[in-house]
Design a protein around this nucleic acid. Sequence first.
DNA 1: CTCCAGGGAGCCT
DNA 2: AGGCTCCATGGA
Length: 296
Amino acid sequence: MDRGAIPTSDIPGAVDVQATLESGQTYLWWRPDGATYETDGAYGGSAWYRTVVDGDVVEVRQTADAIEWRSTTDAAPLVRELLGLDDDLHEIRRAANGDDLTSAAWDAYDGLRIVRDPFFGCLVSFICSAQMRVERIFAMQEALREQYGAPIEYGGETVHAFPEPGALAAATEQELRDLKLGYRAPYVQRTAEMVASGELTERDVRGRAYELAREQLTGFVGVGDKVADCVLLFSLGYLEAVPLDTWIRSAIDDHYPDCDRGNYADTSRAIREQLGPHAGYTQTYLFHYLRSGGDA
DNA sequence: CTCCAGGGAGCCT
DNA sequence: AGGCTCCATGGA
């Protein structure tokens, strides 16, 4: 077992691991202590969080002056990547819209960083997110791991990775419905099939210009513009992507009505113009802030 | 009971 | 392109 610590002094801007991992932007981390996300905010923010990347278990927790990690590999660079620790939050916020709402959201969760989830897990988890509450999206991903994820022996326990595309492609629609995926079950199966067969993969998306990348992603079954933006933002590092979900649409209605252009593509351009470069960063702060009861 | 949750597919015009 | 309608599930 490898372990280490990344001093917060080596990170540009604030870091808040809890806000980063419990803000509904990633469903691929969990608490090995068994605590359910969002049910007990009283633990002080120092709990361990766990995920699996390319067969390696990675755990992180926040201390007073560092991000501690332990892993089956030398995970320091990986942790920096996964948690967006190289993003310069000073610069990103400085360039953002400084209106009252966005300032309140940034102040409330200073240190929240945009994650870089592995592509396939991000894709599947946001296909599952359609018309579904955050807590239940976590539960669905856990069920997929337990049922289809490769087991890894780790410190005397068995940890399950997120399923490989082939494993979900081989599942039946009914099996996935039995995991309470509902009408998303065939979407997940068919998208997994596309990735596993090579019909459409991360390589067809990564590196393309933002709007073209979004268009490519909508080729997956169960992926429209909104889910595509989530994958671009939370996996591929397109920090300008602004997923237009129910919460940000509500914020547009209440605070930026001129940005509502009646269709996704034009509203997207308008809100990106409104929120500035790295608009996805501000969108994620707004999502977490509004959903947590801010802006009453 | 109804309403809603990080929407999208299929079908219609 | 833009507007329906339907789609599972569970908590408020």
